[in-house]
C-alpha cells in the first residue's frame, strides 16, 4: 500500500472525518485527517498529500475557502474537492462548471453532503489521473 495515493480529509465534524477515513481506506487510499484549517496546513507542510477533501464550513465560516486558497498557492498545487452541507440554508449554489468559478473558489470539484462514496472515489481517481 506504500504507493497508494494519500487523501487529506478536513472537517470539524469528527464523525464525517471518521466515515471518510473508513470508506477511503477501504477503497485503497492512505488517509490523513485534520479537524481544522491549521491542523490541515501542518499536515500538508510536514507529510504532504496527493489530494485534499475539504469541508466548506469549518470553525471559521471561511475556513474551507481559506484552506483551498492555501493549497492552490502551494507548489505544486494538489487537487481539491470541496464538500458542503450548507447549500440549502444559505441558498449558495456552487458549481465548478466554468473555469472562472473554479479559479475564484479554488476547488476542482464540489460535492454536497451527504457524499456518495462511489461518486467520491470516482472523482478522486479522475483528479489524480489528470494531475499525473
Amino acid at each position: 500500500m506504500s504507493d497508494a495515493a494519500t487523501v487529506l480529509v478536513v472537517d470539524d465534524d469528527p464523525d464525517f472525518v471518521e466515515q471518510m477515513r473508513l470508506q477511503l481506506t477501504a477503497a485503497g487510499f492512505n488517509v490523513e485527517t485534520a479537524g481544522g484549517e491549521r491542523e490541515a496546513r501542518r499536515i500538508l507542510d510536514s507529510r504532504g498529500a496527493d489530494l485534499a477533501l475539504v469541508d466548506l464550513m469549518m470553525e471559521h465560516a471561511d475556513g474551507g475557502f481559506a484552506l483551498c486558497h492555501y493549497i492552490k498557492n502551494r507548489k505544486p498545487p494538489i487537487p481539491v474537492i470541496l464538500v458542503t452541507g450548507v447549500t440549502h440554508e444559505t441558498g449558495l449554489e456552487f458549481d465548478a462548471a466554468t473555469s472562472e468559478e473554479r479559479s475564484w473558489v479554488k476547488a476542482d470539484v464540489f460535492l454536497a453532503k451527504p457524499v456518495r462514496v462511489e461518486q467520491l472515489v470516482r472523482e478522486i481517481h479522475r483528479l489524480l489521473k489528470e494531475q499525473s
Binding site: 466515515q19 470508506q23 452541507g85 462514496v117
Partner: peptide, 15 residues
C-alpha cells in the same frame, strides 16, 4: 448526517 453515514457504512459492511 453523521448517524446516517454510519448506518450506510454498517449496512454495506464497508469497514
Amino acid at each position: 448526517a453523521a448517524v446516517e453515514g454510519y448506518l450506510r457504512i454498517m449496512k454495506d459492511r464497508a469497514a
